[in-house]
Amino acid sequence: MTADLAISTRGLRKTYRKLNMTRSVAVEGLDLDVPVGGVHGFLGPNGSGKTTTIRMLLGLIRADAGTMRLFDQEVPKALPEVVGRVGAIVEQPKFFPNFSGRRNLTLLAGAIGVDPKLVDVVIADVGLADRAKDRYRGYSLGMKQRLAIAATLLKDPDLLIFDEPTNGLDPAGIREIRGTMRGLADRGKTVLVSSHILNEVELVADTVSIIARGRLVASGRVTDLIGAAATTAVRVGVPDPAVAGPVLAAQGWSARLDGHLLVVEGAPDPGRITQVLAGAGIFVNELVPVRADLESVFLELTAGQGPGTHAESADHAPHGRRAQKGGAE
């Protein structure tokens, strides 16, 4: 464990008893490291153990085994000491429906000894000033989510944990949340965001951890993960793919038809493809390098590891890809 980690877990395990008295594994030996600073995406299919992990970190669920540390302090034992540095939104956080947004936050501010004047500041920060006096029950989903963010900001925490923060939000709301997360990270905060909207995470995250069946399957910088999964494939548009295919194959490259385009793999660079086809009198009308994105990396790593499937060791992750631990360093 080192002080440059905001979150660190080792061998974290959690099982749930089912009605038939058997136990289902939610988290199985999870080793998770979240570096201090920046936005860290926490990704995994539904039921992979993301929320359970977050709940364990916050002391809402007891872990069966393993250790957890927040800012190098062991939790849940030291949670009362470290909780002031951690703001969290777990799934859809709930507030008292009959209280106004301001009153809800004032009560929370009282619990942590924060100046009540800060309540209006954080409410303004999340754009709820006009509705602060309204009852929480009348808030839209987006407003509730923004109030939850305001609640986390009350502590001025060093670590913010957002569990599916964009659930139910419209595109504008999602963009706002993304901006908020990025802004916090730019101010030196650490943001852990669990989400299944991968392109959102890709846009905002500096590092990610991907889990499946309760185990870490990959971790590191987003660029590194995408880079590792990058291929040299290129989509090529030609007037007659049936003629172009054999020409490309003659170069030792693979060419398969994908719709009206040819997907060419093995070419050293796209320029060589145009050169070869032009030499054969075939002129390219479309040439698109196939780039790997976080979604493709995620799908590759978590293929067949949705909920209800049996836990599998990270060392035997799909396609032989090993988890890249500590890739952020």
Partner: peptide, 14 residues
């Protein structure tokens, strides 16, 4: 019932 206890415990964990 209102599931506010979880929110509360993230502020008052004892």
């Amino acid at each position: 019932g209102a599931r506010t206890m979880g929110t509360w415990l993230t502020f008052a964990p004892r």
